[in-house]
Design a protein around this nucleic acid. Sequence first.
DNA 1: TTGAAAGCGCTAACAT
DNA 2: ATGTTAGCGCTTTCAA
Lengths: 331, 331
Amino acid sequence: MADVAARAGVTKQTVSNVVSGKKVRPETLAKVNKAIADLGYKPNLVARSLRTGSTSTVGLFVPSVANPFYSEVVEEVENLLVGRGYNLLLATTRDDPDYTRAHLENLAARSVDALLVACDNGVAQQIPMLVEAAFPVALFAWEGDPPTTLPVVSIDYEHAGFLAGRYLRDLGHRNVAVIADLPAHTPRVAGLRRAFADDGLAIDDHKVFACIRDDAVGGFDAGRAALEADPDVTAIFATHDILAVGAVEAVVRSGRQVPGDVSIVGFDDIAQVGQIQPALTTITVPKREMAQQAVELLLRAVDSGRPPTNVFTLLRPTLTIRDSSAPPRAT
Amino acid sequence: MADVAARAGVTKQTVSNVVSGKKVRPETLAKVNKAIADLGYKPNLVARSLRTGSTSTVGLFVPSVANPFYSEVVEEVENLLVGRGYNLLLATTRDDPDYTRAHLENLAARSVDALLVACDNGVAQQIPMLVEAAFPVALFAWEGDPPTTLPVVSIDYEHAGFLAGRYLRDLGHRNVAVIADLPAHTPRVAGLRRAFADDGLAIDDHKVFACIRDDAVGGFDAGRAALEADPDVTAIFATHDILAVGAVEAVVRSGRQVPGDVSIVGFDDIAQVGQIQPALTTITVPKREMAQQAVELLLRAVDSGRPPTNVFTLLRPTLTIRDSSAPPRAT
DNA sequence: TTGAAAGCGCTAACAT
DNA sequence: ATGTTAGCGCTTTCAA
């Protein structure tokens, strides 16, 4: 920068003004730009960050990127950040409080401008640290008790579960099994139960099958267990789509049809489940909108220099009916 | 840091030595550590980076994270980096040279320590800039002509296509259609063709269907087109698994069976295709091993302070036979 | 082993 | 509109 200044016959400050687009006389601008071009000067953003305390970098914590729900989120967040001139520092938290803490301290020491955090158990245990961060923090897709001390953009997971339950109930299903990632998805299951309870019905604990593995194989195993425990089950609610995919396979392999014999309802509406056969009936979670609102919230705080407004925003999940659900077969 | 030094009765330098784990007398160490704890001191990594020119951050360029192939890669890279104390700066290149260039300049200005770049057309056009980067750069999963000026960790895509072709040929298939993401996957198709050409057979151009969309719907459309163009097709090779999933659906919806009437072979072996029904026969690409080798290569260069060894590493793709392929029905 | 001085490249604040 | 001065927090160099 000093070289550029010397060559243009101005001071470093003027070069700085040019680089950061401040008011400069046109002729000075031309001189400086020429010197910049001649010398191939590139500003050092680390130095700028040291001086300004801002890095144009936003951290994103997700439990994992292997899950398509989160890869869609990552994609969306990256889009939004790039559009506004920010970089994405990605960290996976893996449901582990220690990982989360380590990442958090690292981000703090790097002075990221903001942090967006997806729900996970490891994170939940580090809420106090998040609250004390020197930069704006927002939570999203938060299931379970959200802290009141941080802004949250989420959906009402219990209500989403209710939507699935009401739908199955109104179709006429009375013998419903649940395969679930527990305890994480407890609210989804509770909502489903409430829909049936409203009608004087109930879903017993022994109809709820917790998955050992959190993938299609886990869904398959739990689905098979559900069918073996009660062959008359007419519907299965899976607390997320990947489990639902496994459940579909368990049903089909048992010689039953979807949705003829057994209806399946998933949760999340990840991109691929609308395209496979049978297209999955599922709860559509507005992930991209959540990401958008959370990013907006954060960047507004960054721009204004004030802490983010401590809002609790709930977006509306919807039921998307496709080909995996139907009324129960008449007996 | 000055505060800590004052409180411990030493100089900043000694504090620095303590923080970076250099030799310090035990009693001094104790004093300094106490002062650090008392004041809740956290080193400022931006300042350190300015001084040392290293940020403990590695950039990763992928075309997109929505594609499970790349989300697996991202996950693996993040794992490896965290394990070695590095951060992950993620950028999506979207097949766009301008995006790529912008990201690249940004990373350079931020002095990342290294950059890992997945193949994509937008990147290919920016190779000269990559070569001139001040930090180590490695390419991976490179299809098509890899530049000789940068280290590459990849597989032989043509050979991988050959494996698929030889398998189908040896099963007895003679009427094979291809659905492909073109021109990106030209080598995969070429390999398939070579396998058949070896045997005096050929796959005509009109048996190769380029996908309009790069998702399951695109695979479905292309699959349907292939079946309509020639109802006697006995096998379909899809140049990646997502397309294959769509192709399976096209076959099933046409009233045919997989693999009874039509065999389907995919490419990539993304996690979910081993779990869905029918489990997909596919070319297993060692993505995680590629990521691992590329990361190793880069970090070795970073640690040694020398440019990365300009190697061209080819890992071995394998054929994974599952349930979507069988000999053609006897006529 | 520890201390003192200098400077990485930039921008904020003020003076001109 | 531009120049001057100072300093962000750290590490490197050299001296003690």
